[in-house]
Design a protein around this nucleic acid. Structure first.
Length: 911
RNA sequence: GGGCGAGUGGCGGAAUUGGUAGACGCGCUGGGUUCAGGACCCAGUGAGCAUUGAGCUCGUGGAGGUUCGAGUCCUCUCUCGCCCACCA
């Protein structure tokens, strides 16, 4: 105990030993059950941040636990290495994306090494290497052949900032999800994958254990609606088809609205309206997605002058165009039923269009449009029918009369994979001069990215002006041009779990022999932010591969080894768990003066002044002045000076803001920034650097703290003091391992008690690790540490029991803190790695309690806690309970009417 | 606006099926040790009342309900978070 625990030396030594002995190499072994543990691969942005540690080290701990439980575990790692940041670095700093990416990867590999994980680096895959993207291209070719990849003209999301199109999933609130810059709609010819073909199957989550929120998000995103397609005829023109979820309200369709981009607009527009229509279309085209979807904006539109015939009423109704109708959903046209749809009501009101109720609203209904259920009215043969029956009756009528049919519509759009960027996997397609297109033959894959490229500050992809890349020959020997778009990087990550199986395999994307053993992924961990992107794409990819027969050889190998391939390739990952986010540290001490109007106990602040020191607050006259005790975005909880009751202060968007620490005029967004402790970011100065933590505390302490500090799936704010508790735990454990335990007066009870704590811990920690409950697992281990510490001081435990408990603690802690446990394992006199040991078996008898606390309640309220043997009889229990003075006092001699007997833990006397 | 989730000490969080609320840790308080600080050790720590016999009351956002018994179940309500959002 005269030595300090030198984590730096110990951790480095064991990391080297493990690497040299190759204990983390995983090999196929059909005699053992397999376990494929996967954690989302990082983008090589340059530095590993605390979030990577938070996601990866518990996953590593669980993989280690599974190995101790007897599984043959694969825990690989790689890099999702294509993407825009590399290209931006190239433009800004004149570094080639290769150089930038590779130096980052190198750095991150080192940092990953410092975590002490059991990653099998021989399985590493990097998506930007030709060996990898050869197969990304190969998959594209297969999808193309299967009709699942197609090139089409569509209105797409164009980001002027990034100079590329984006998938629907990458656009949030009309802004690019990465940079937050607005996105505009453009009509472009692009490559798509037919993910919509799988919409129905993607809604099923049978047989997979995924978190409910992720399933809900995907379901929501796919957005299945049932209804009908209805055709409205146009005099001398093509029919207008609409999709509606409310065919029962067809009698109330008093006008139609087309998206401004709808192809029939030109045909419908009368000469008198031509100018207005052209003007409106131009205006809509110029609006950003953000403006077009702004809900506060009043709906506007113009009449085309054309009319269509409502098939059920026979009436001719006017056709309008408006940009609240989206070209990308349904047919790009709607039948407007103002009485039963709020948007249509607003539009009808504004342009004085007729409104006919077809559903009787309840008597107390006061609103305008009524979208609820009710008996049909003004609807001829539907009158009196409620929604469900009316829908069915109308669909039957439409099908009988040939005016429409039952239909299912999905919100999900096809996956747009083209990117007008250099740093991505090329699309292996060439175009000949006559406009035909052909795939690059498999034998010529990969189409490699040229290295001698120059980046233009315009942001244009260098592939578009690289002559050697562009010019090629078609299969007929004539000159042809290459596709210059590259693929969305989500394409790379849709199949990486397969490449890990055999990153050097050259006969196919992965070795079927490996796939037959390891697939599918058993546990997948990562952030929930990928719920509707990566996690949806990879499911689609797996199902498409299955249907294209790409798992054929793997199935064959499975059968050869006696494993049934049935259902093995329906889903990529069986179990999914999402970690939360580590947030910036709470920053106490700010005080605030806020003025505004008070409504209830909430202040809507029109003016806000933030000071760092409450002494700076002027005495009075303000609506609220006090310390900020809670904050989220624009809402703060403020404890007024001298008050016990906190006040909620909501800062209005246009409030006047002064922040003492930031000179000059301040804005609400600065305030939000100042108050928002949510995310770590460099500009907020609240970033925690894992490298520094590892240097100061050691990887084991950081790992333990990250697992102990929060509910893993939730996350929370970093606490720079809290980590000390985990450090103490690790150092205490190391000291216990080195201490030469000498018993003095051994005591049977103390010995049994220590053994009980140890053996109970085996079960509890195992259960917790199984269920990703790291915090309670660590708490249980700390209890065992406390028990051992206590025994060491008291010296009253039998030495053999002490050794046993010490050994149990070492084994149970091994998945969480791999280095210090290895060190202690050896200092306890063991040979061989602790990480190759089996998980200990709990001795039921040692774990069993003999004496427990029996709680005695009178009428459900606790009146005594008595020590009782576990097998106490009812009569005996009653006797000791009634003998307790406090129980007797509350029974007051009344007869016991009922005894609720939960012996030996609880006895409730009802009097 | 719609969907989902969550509110427990000063803080992070515990609490199988309704059965000892606050495990474990941080922080804090008192004491010890130390040249000092840190570290370390011991004791205490939900609130209030009582007290060196005990014990009592309140307490899991709020209001009600079911039950011998509710953090847990039901109804209403408030607040926060996340996702989606003119999706016809």
């Amino acid at each position: 105990m005269n030595h300090r625990y030198d984590h730096q030396t110990v951790e480095a030594r064991w990391q080297k030993t493990w690497e040299d002995s190759g204990i983390y190499r995983s090999r196929v072994d059909w005699t053992k059950p397999k376990h494929y543990a996967l954690t989302m691969l990082p983008y090589p942005s340059g530095d590993l941040h605390i979030g990577h540690w938070y996601a990866m080290t518990p996953s590593d701990a669980r993989a280690r636990y599974m190995r101790m439980k007897g599984y043959n575990v694969l825990f690989p790692m790689g890099f999702d290495a294509f993407g825009l940041p590399a290209e931006n670095a190239a433009v800004q700093a004149n570094i080639h994306p290769w150089t930038w990416t590779y130096s980052n990867i190198e750095r991150m590999r080192r940092q990953l090494g410092s975590m002490g994980t059991m990653i099998d680096w021989s399985r590493e895959a990097v998506s930007c290497t030709p060996e990898y993207y050869r197969w990304t291209e190969w998959f594209f070719a297969r999808l193309y052949e299967a009709g699942l990849a197609y090139r089409g003209k569509a209105l797409v999301n164009w980001s002027p900032t990034l100079q590329t199109v984006l998938a629907n999933e990458q656009v949030i609130d009309g802004k690019d999800e990465r940079t937050g810059q607005p996105v505009v709609q453009r009509m472009m010819e692009q490559w798509f994958f037919r993910i919509t073909d799988y919409a129905e199957e993607l809604l099923e989550f049978d047989g997979i254990d995924w978190p409910d929120p992720v399933k809900a998000m995907q379901t929501n995103w796919i957005g299945r609606s049932e209804g009908a397609r209805v055709r409205f005829s146009v005099e001398g023109g093509e029919d207008i088809e609409v999709f509606t979820t409310r065919p029962d309200t067809l009698h109330g369709a008093t006008f139609m609205v087309l998206a401004p981009e709808h192809p029939l607009v030109d045909l419908l527009t009368t000469p008198e309206n031509a100018e207005a229509v052209a003007g409106y279309r131009a205006q809509a085209a110029g609006r950003s997605e953000l403006q077009r979807t702004d809900l506060t904006m009043e709906k506007d539109g113009v009449a085309t002058g054309g009319y269509a015939r409502n098939p059920v009423t026979g009436q001719w109704i006017p056709v309008w165009i408006a940009d609240y109708v989206l070209m990308s959903y349904g047919t790009g046209a709607i039948m407007a039923v103002p009485a039963e749809d709020e948007r249509d009501w607003a539009f009808a009101e504004r342009y004085d269009l007729p409104i006919v109720r077809t559903v009787q609203p309840p008597a107390d209904f006061e609103g305008k449009a009524y979208a609820g259920d009710g008996p049909s009215i003004n609807s001829d043969f539907l009158d009196g029918l409620y929604m469900v029956e009316a829908k069915e009756a109308m669909i039957r009528w439409l099908e009988d009369q040939g005016h429409g049919k039952r239909a299912v519509q999905y919100r999900l759009r096809d996956w747009l994979i083209s990117r007008q960027r250099y740093w991505g996997s090329p699309i292996p397609v060439i175009y000949s001069q006559d406009g035909t297109m052909e795939l690059v033959p498999d034998a010529l894959l990969p189409v490699e990215l040229p290295e001698d490229v120059e980046f233009m500050p315009t942001g244009r992809s260098p592939l578009t002006y690289h002559e050697d890349f562009l010019n090629t020959l078609g299969s007929d020997g004539r000159t042809a041009t290459r596709e210059t778009d590259t693929m969305d990087t989500f394409m790379c990550s849709s199949w990486y779990q397969l490449r890990y199986l055999s990153p050097d395999y050259a006969e196919g994307p992965f070795d079927p022999e490996e796939g037959a053993y390891w697939l599918p992924v058993d546990v997948y961990t990562g952030g929930a932010e990928h719920a509707v992107m990566h996690l949806l794409y990879t499911r689609f990819f797996t199902k498409a591969m299955r249907d294209m027969g790409l798992y054929g050889p793997t199935s064959e190998r499975m059968r050869a080894h006696g494993r049934d391939p049935e259902g093995m390739f329906d889903e990529p990952m069986i179990m999914l768990r999402n970690q939360g986010q580590v947030l910036g540290e709470e920053r106490p001490g700010d005080s605030v003066i806020a003025e505004g109007r008070m409504e209830g106990d909430r202040l809507y602040a029109e003016s806000v002044t933030v000071v760092s020191d409450p002494a700076d607050l002027p005495a009075s006259g303000k609506a609220v002045a006090g310390e900020i005790i809670g904050r989220t975005e624009r809402v703060m909880k403020v404890l007024p000076i001298g008050s016990q009751q906190a006040v909620t202060v909501e800062v209005l968007p246009d409030a006047e803001v002064r922040i003492a620490a930031i000179p000059g005029d301040n804005t609400v967004s600065q305030l939000r920034h100042r108050l928002d402790v949510q995310r770590m970011s460099k500009s907020r100065g609240n970033v925690v650097n894992p490298d520094d933590l590892v240097e100061e505390f050691g990887a084991d302490t950081v790992r333990t703290y990250l697992m102990f500090a929060f509910e893993w799936e939730k996350g929370g704010p970093w606490d720079s003091r809290g980590i000390r508790g985990s450090q103490r735990f690790i150092v205490d454990f190391w000291r216990l391992g080195r201490s030469d335990y000498q018993a003095a007066d051994t005591d049977a009870d103390a010995t049994a008690s220590l053994r009980r704590t140890a053996h109970q811990a085996i079960t509890k920690v195992g259960d917790d690790l199984e269920r990703f409950r790291w915090n309670t697992a660590v708490a249980e281990l700390m209890k065992l540490r406390n028990a051992l510490n206590n025994a060491r001081v008291e010296r009253n435990v039998d030495p053999e029991a002490w050794q046993e408990a010490m050994s149990i603690l070492t084994l149970l802690l091994a998945p969480i803190a791999p280095h210090v446990t290895e060190e202690v394992w050896h200092s306890l006199g063991n040979t061989g790695s602790v990480h190759l040991q089996p998980w200990p078996e709990a001795d039921e008898r040692a774990a069993a309690e003999e004496i427990v606390t029996m709680v005695v309640q009178v009428n459900g309220r606790v009146r005594a806690r008595l020590e009782a043997p576990v097998d106490i009889s009812e009569s005996e229990a009653l006797e000791v309970a009634l003998a307790a003075p406090n129980v007797a006092r509350h029974v007051k001699g009344r007869p016991i009417r009922r005894v609720i007997d939960r012996r030996p833990r609880l006895l409730n006397l009802v009097v």
